Measured scan of single mutants.
Amino acid sequence: IRVTEDENDEPIEIPSEDDGTVLLSTVTAQFPGACGLRYRNPVSQCMRGVRLVEGILHAPDAGWGNLVYVVN
């Protein structure tokens, strides 16, 4: 998935696990201090948080898609 520190920055590609999840530790390896991800909902244009359970980030209902995710 494509992740950036700010919406206007160049994104970095972060690998997902075989089950489609992303480990928070993978994100923090590239973005120290990150505690989660958010993205701009293409329909509402509002920022939406990615579900985080026990250090594992779960894809939105429509999958990770071609969105750019921003670190929290």
Rank of each mutant, 00 (worst) to 15 (best):
S25K: 14
V71D: 04
V27H: 03
I1V: 09
C46P: 05
P42S: 09
C46H: 10
Q30L: 12
G33N: 08
E13S: 12
L57M: 06
M47I: 10
V22E: 01
Q30G: 03
T21A: 04
I12R: 12
P60A: 04
A29P: 02
P60V: 03
G33D: 13
Y69V: 00
I56Q: 07
G65A: 07
N66I: 04
L23K: 15
G36A: 02
S25M: 06
W64Q: 02
V71I: 07
H58V: 09
F31M: 05
D6R: 09
P60S: 00
Q45T: 09
V53Y: 09
N66C: 00
T21E: 03
T4Y: 00
E17V: 06
G33Y: 06
P32E: 06
D18F: 07
D61K: 10
N8H: 14
I14G: 01
E54P: 03
A34C: 11
R2L: 08
G55S: 04
A62K: 09
I1Y: 00
I14P: 03
V27I: 08
T21P: 02
T26K: 15
A29D: 15
P32I: 07
T21C: 07
L67A: 10
L24M: 07
P60G: 01
G20I: 02
F31S: 03
Y39T: 05
E54M: 07
V70N: 06
I1F: 04
I14Y: 04
V68Q: 07
C35F: 09
V71F: 06
G36R: 02
G63F: 12
V50W: 00
C35I: 14
T21V: 04
R51D: 14
L67V: 14
V22C: 06
V70C: 08
Y69Q: 05
G63V: 02
V53D: 06
V71A: 08
V3Q: 00
P11K: 06
S25L: 05
G20M: 01
V53Q: 14
V27L: 13
P42V: 06
W64E: 03
F31P: 01
D9Q: 13
G20A: 04
V27S: 05
M47G: 04
R40W: 14
A29S: 11
W64S: 04
I56K: 14
R2V: 04
D6S: 14
E13A: 08
R48P: 02
D9P: 05
E54N: 10
L67D: 07
T28V: 13
V68C: 08
G33C: 10
E10K: 09
R51M: 12
F31V: 02
D61V: 09
G36S: 06
T28M: 13
E5C: 08
T21F: 03
L67P: 03
V3N: 00
H58I: 10
E10Y: 09
N72G: 05
P11R: 01
A34E: 01
Y69W: 02
E5L: 12
V3I: 15
R2E: 03
I12E: 03
G33A: 09
G33M: 10
G65V: 01
V71K: 00
E17P: 05
I14Q: 00
M47Y: 14
N66H: 06
G49Y: 11
R38F: 14
S16W: 12
